[in-house]
Amino acid sequence: MRDKFVLTHLEELEYESIYVIREVAAQFERPVLLFSGGKDSIVMTYLAVKAFYPAKLPFPLLHIDTGHNFEETITYRDELVAKIGAQLIVGSVQESIDKGRVIEEKGPTASRNLLQTTTLLDTIEKYKFDAAMGGGRRDEEKARAKERFFSHRDEFGQWDPKNQRPELWNIFNGRKNQGEHFRVFPISNWTEMDVWQYIMHENIELPDLYFTHQREVFLRDGQWMAKAPFMMLKDGEFYETKTVRCRTIGDVSCTGLTLSAANSLEDIIQEIAATRVTERGGRADDLRSEAAMEDRKKEGYF
């Protein structure tokens, strides 16, 4: 028993997220959980397992596969899905390209990051998902700071930031018209530090990419990027082997690596506490313009 009825911030965040995830299962007919293999979606999946235990997840996981993944992400994904007995659906960006739904960017800085939006919306439409849960956090980026827990999307999958539904207390309005859907962000109120602390507290297993390792990398615009068959070098760029780890995991073309010897969760937490750059500071996709995230979100991005 506790001597006073006060929760720690991690408990409070956990209870809030579990409440949101259960609310999704209760209010929607065909929800889905967007799983990227990054730490945020891993934590979200873990919270979902907790929310419905001892029953299995009442919704599938959806992975939008750019085809440009770190191998470790796919291995981890398949092991996790087997362990929790969840259903996995994969939406393939390669397939969208082959079908002519999208056109691949050209040149050395090409990324499939933007193309994901079309694949995501096509997959949502194909399976008639009416709510897609994502691991977005409000502390990540300034356009996300104004995102709702339950975020309404019109029949084109678009976000209208100036016309968002008011969201008060913990009463979530998931009512919608035919063809519309919701994006739901159960860990909206978590910070990067909270996520890491929770992973440590709950002893959650992560892909090896998050811990220090030797890798062939090259330097581009001040960012260390990983060597991969589909990555092209520009003039003056060259491969070298460095001791690195990922602070976030997206696909290879937009994930910057951090020079780091952090080998344990304790090391990582100390590193983040001392760091002076945000985790999205290493994401090439956000650096494109001041409103890059807002523009992508309006079109239907994660």
Binding site: V6, L7, T8, H9, L10, E12, L13, M193, Q197, M200, H201, E266, I269, Q270
Partner: peptide, 10 residues
């Protein structure tokens, strides 16, 4: 400290 942070209130 790693430990202290776990006990914080919100």
């Amino acid at each position: 400290s790693t430990k202290g942070y776990l006990d914080m209130e919100l």
